[in-house]
Amino acid sequence: MIKIVEPIFSEEEKEAVIEIIESHQITRGRWTKTFQEEFARFVGVGHCYTVCSGTTALFIALRALGVDKGDRVVVPAMSFMATIDSVYLACGEPVVVDVDEFFTMDLNQLEDAVKRFRPKVVMPVHLYGGMADMEGLMFLAEKYGFYVVEDAAQAHGAELKGKRAGAWGHIGAFSFYASKNVPMGEGGALTTDDPDIAKKIESWIDFGDHPAFNVRITEFQAAIGTIQLRKLKERNERRREIASRYTSAFSEDFTTPLEREDSLHVYHLYTLMHPERDRLIEELKGSGIDARVYYNYLLHELRNSEHLPTPNAERFRKEVFSIPVHPYLKEEEVELIIGALLRAVSSGKII
C-alpha cells in the first residue's frame, strides 16, 4: 500500500536520540531551546514556544488573548475538529463561516459575521498547506479590532507575499503530529512577534500567576523536530513538484487545488474534488493506493454551534479526497498513482 503519509527518519535523528539518552537530559535541554530559536527564525517572528500538541497550542493562544466564557471566536467550516474544540476548551463560543475556492475562510462572509457577532478572535485555517487570505484578513482585524490566531497546523513553510504562515496573525499555532510536514510524533508550537503577547503565552505554559499546565515536549521530540525542520525546504519543494505533476495530469477530469496569487502552497495534502469521490477512493485502494477524505464533516455539525450559511463547504465535503503527496514517494509510485486514478475516473464514464 502506498500510504497517504509516511514520515521517514534518518541516522541523524537516531544519533540525536541516543545522544539524549546518554546525556540524561531528556527534557528542557539544549534541543528544545534550539528548536524554538530555529523555528522562530524560520517563521520570521521573535518568539516561539513549544507545547505538547497543536490543539494545546490553539487553546493557549486563545487563553493568552483573553478568550473566556461567552467570547466569540470565528472559525471556518472546513478543518480538523481541533480547531473548534479549542474554542470550547477555552470557554469561548464558536461562530462558523463558509470557505472560499481555496478551502480557506471566506472573507466576505467573515465581515458579515464580525459585524453581527463582534468576535474577540478570528481563527483562519491554512488548510491542506495553502494560505488563507491573510492580507485581507489583517485589514479586517485592524478595521474591526479583533485578534487573529492562525491555525497553521498544516502549513509549515507556506507563504503569502513572501511572509510565512504563523507570522501574519497575532499568534500562529502549529502541530508537529506524525503526519505533518515537520513531524515530531506529537507536539505543537505558538509563534508571535508581540512581546506582550509572548509574556501571556508564557504564563499559560510556566507555572506561576494562575493555574497552568505541564505541556512541555521532550528533548527527543525537539531533536527530531529540529532535524526535520532543517530538511523542510527541500521536502516542501518535492511536495510541490509532485503536486504540479498531479495537477497537469488531473486538471481535465477533476477540480484540482488552486494556489493563491503570490503564495507558496506546501501541499501537506493534495486534495482533489470529484462527484464520484467514494467510488474513486475504493478503486484506488483496490490498486494499493491510500486515499482519504479530509474532511467529511463541517465544524458546526460536530458541535451544533452558531454558523452562517456554508454552501461552498457543504458541496466541497461531498467531493474532496486526498492522495499521497509526501516527499518520500518514488518516481514509479507517482506514476502508479496518476495511472490508477486516471483509469478509475475513465471506468466511470459513459461512452
Rank of each mutant, 00 (worst) to 15 (best):
L299A: 06
V51M: 01
T271W: 08
T34K: 06
V17Y: 13
V96K: 06
R235S: 03
F103W: 13
V95H: 03
V293N: 05
R72E: 14
I171Q: 04
A173I: 05
Y88M: 15
A189C: 01
R277E: 00
R72Q: 14
A344V: 08
E15H: 04
H265W: 07
V67Q: 15
R116V: 06
E319D: 05
F254Y: 11
G187R: 00
L308M: 07
R238V: 04
A173Q: 11
M134H: 12
A82E: 12
H170D: 11
A16W: 12
N312S: 02
D85H: 12
H47N: 13
L232M: 11
Y144M: 09
L107V: 06
P119G: 15
I171P: 02
D71I: 04
D133E: 14
R230F: 01
E333S: 04
F321Q: 02
G162L: 12
E150L: 08
I201P: 03
F220E: 11
H326S: 05
F220L: 10
S175C: 11
L107P: 01
F146V: 15
E237F: 03
V125P: 05
P183I: 04
V51C: 05
V325W: 09
T256K: 05
E314K: 05
L336G: 08
L272V: 11
G29T: 01
K318D: 02
S305N: 01
R317W: 00
A165K: 02
I289W: 03
K349D: 11
D194R: 03
K143M: 10
F139G: 10
A243M: 05
G44Y: 10
D278M: 00
H265F: 13
I60S: 03
Q154P: 04
K161F: 09
Y177L: 07
M134F: 12
E101F: 00
P309Y: 06
P119A: 13
I4A: 08
E259F: 11
S263P: 04
S23I: 01
L329I: 03
A249Q: 04
A132R: 06
F9L: 08
S346L: 02
V99N: 07
T27K: 15
G129W: 10
E241H: 04
T83P: 09
R239I: 10
L302G: 02
F42E: 09
R41V: 07
F254L: 09
Y267W: 13
E282S: 08
E186M: 09
Q25R: 13
D133K: 05
E282M: 07
T271I: 12
